[in-house]
Design a protein around this nucleic acid. Structure first.
Lengths: 219, 219, 219, 219
DNA sequence: CATGAATGAGCTTTCATTCAT
DNA sequence: AATGAATGAAAGCTCATTCAT
């Protein structure tokens, strides 16, 4: 009579339990976890896992998709960033770190297996948008394709899985930066976007130019 | 003195057949290939595989070792290179390409599993030598450790497995290059190529050197 | 309160089927039976056997434990026996006979392998209790340790496996009997049966007792 | 031209090498040793083992036969013993000890497997002779068959394999002694054979009888 | 729908035996 | 005749998937 907890609600809850358990198990133990282990972790029977996810790969796909959905959300906030290059790099670093921390995710991404294929398109699209914006702003080299960025992402994941710490990741991602276009002010260090036309300014503004001049002519 | 057609010749041939088959199978299908498959491919019985390689991991180890042996040979030629940075980068690119082409090799390298441990030390030593030489010559950043280079190698392997072509690899490896080697004039910002011999000039020419001097002595 | 026809009932039934099949197979064919054979005999798949008994040795352990459990039950009835020596010997004869009839059980007992270790402690304790009681009552030699009894048990099992019939077992176990319990008169050498109650007489009668007394007091 | 070491000599030598190696290997590691191990120990190829002993069991049979041959030799010396019971018991103790020390031999004897069958007849005959002599001399109970002695032997082997030391063996074998027939002198302890007719003497001779009398009448 | 027991093909590994050299 | 490599049929065990309850 009330808003009866319909059979569907139960099913939904179980589905979510399994998904959560699988997420944890995959992250910690890699693709090798057995479904029994996942079922036990979820507190359901093995059959229930199969009812919701007819094959192991389906389950994996959903887990992967769920992870990337959170990336998408993160990206959404970034696209409105005033400095597109920072949005782009910020997203990449965050994504790489999150993937590298998850054994199964890393495996899936590294060998480009099925589950990855399902989400790759979307991720590629998100990255593509961020990349395009960053390139338009001059912060990222224009001769880089989104496919190349995706490859770089995979490489950084592999790298970070071996050596904890993001130092190398940051270093490597720098290859995407447009050094001749978004250089920093020689005096205060602020980034300077390349102008649409004309010579690239060396200083962020009059104040710094003056300072530099004074230094040069001092004495 | 001549070739003894001992029974061993046959065994040796079979051993090589198995090794070759395993090499191919591992390369094409990854670590998951079954020994039966390898045996069939080699045209021998399952028992023969085990006679020569008592456990699957032994076989894998030999395959991996054989691959890396060829790297060592390649490195030997490079160490006498007049331009150590080129030797260093050349070795890395070659190694990465060769590893990336082989599924099992890439898997082994990416997850640092047992078989890799056996050869890692040696590879690290080879890379370390090339790195040290390149750093001494000023072609590679001094603040890079060999461990970081190894991580980078792993990352590049993962990257190259996804996108055929070495373009990104070359790009990424550039982060190791010593930018001061082709630095810019501290006064006017013009690039200055490193001289073949002697100390690297800090300024593009006499005019700028003079200016800088004035600044230093001012006051 | 009633019997719940849960899915477990089936599992339990299968478990019992497997156990029964294993019991038979082990008994008839020894430790060498393959799990496939047992599975087939039980009418289940090989996997089912492994679900209930993750390793062959586990299965064997259960079979062995089950057999010995029945011994314990038998022993329970015996400890209240009025004639401890008969309880002791009765238990040994029964145990030996039951073990000797079972190929696997005999093997396990004879080479003291793992599964035996699990039950040996308990069996030893049971035997120890019976032994102690029998020794207190004077029916069993005091210089026999429980370890020696266990060895004798093993020996009798081996013996009985070769020659059907308990005659030799009974004969051999007699070595444990306290001969002084039916000792001979210290003077004339006539056998003296132990009295039902009270202290055991040292002499066959008054005449001999007198003689002995004289000897003691002489001089 | 000389007494050329005919091919047969070589073959014979190899055969003996294999036999010796098998003897050691079986003794130390039980029936489970692999033929490869035996071949390696003998310093010959696996094929050579099979040439001389077409199946593993044949090899085992020969090893077993060889061991028992040495028993026969030992028995030969004993049959001339003046005290047949001691010859009989001496042989049993020696045989039991030797068998118990050899893992494979003990296994073969304990489960009466094929190889044992081949030698059992002969061993039984030897034991039978010793037994008959001992029984004639009154040192061994007349109601014991040779089959029962063989069983007892097997039992003692099993027993001794578990508890080092011959104490229990000696104890157990005592069940075969004819206590009423070959008792010892009550004074000096020398064994006294039963007389063909009449009452059994209590003392070995007049001297001891006198001593005992003195004790009894002293005072 | 959920359960969790059953399935059975597949894996690596061992070893007595065969056979080309 | 000796060699020792090759064989291949087991063995125990795992696990994704199916199915009776």
């Amino acid at each position: 009579m009330t808003v009866s907890s319909s059979p569907r609600a139960d099913a939904r809850r179980n589905r979510d339990l399994v998904l959560a358990a699988a997420s944890t198990a995959f992250a910690e133990r890699g693709l090798g976890v057995s479904l029994d282990e996942i079922a036990a972790l979820a507190g359901v029977g093995a059959g229930t896992v199969h009812r919701h996810f007819p094959a192991k790969e389906r389950l994996l796909e959903e887990v992967v998709a769920a992870r990337f959905a959170s990336f998408r959300a993160a990206a959404a906030g970034l696209t409105e960033n005033k400095r597109p290059a920072e949005a782009f790099f910020g997203f990449l670093v965050a994504a790489i770190t999150r993937i590298a921390v998850d054994r199964a995710l890393a495996q899936v991404v590294e060998d480009g297996s099925g589950p990855w294929a399902r989400v790759a398109e979307e991720v590629t699209s998100v990255v593509g948008d961020l990349l395009a914006a960053a390139q338009r702003a001059g912060g990222v080299r224009a001769d880089i394709s989104v496919a190349e960025v995706m490859s770089l992402l995979v490489g950084c994941v592999a790298m970070e899985r071996r050596s904890a710490g993001t130092r190398m990741t940051v270093l490597v991602l720098d290859v995407l930066r447009n050094e001749s276009n978004e250089t920093r002010c020689a005096v205060c260090g602020e980034p300077i976007a390349a102008p649409a036309t004309g010579r690239r300014p060396r200083y962020c503004g009059g104040a710094c130019r003056q300072k530099a001049h004074r230094v040069r002519t001092s004495g």
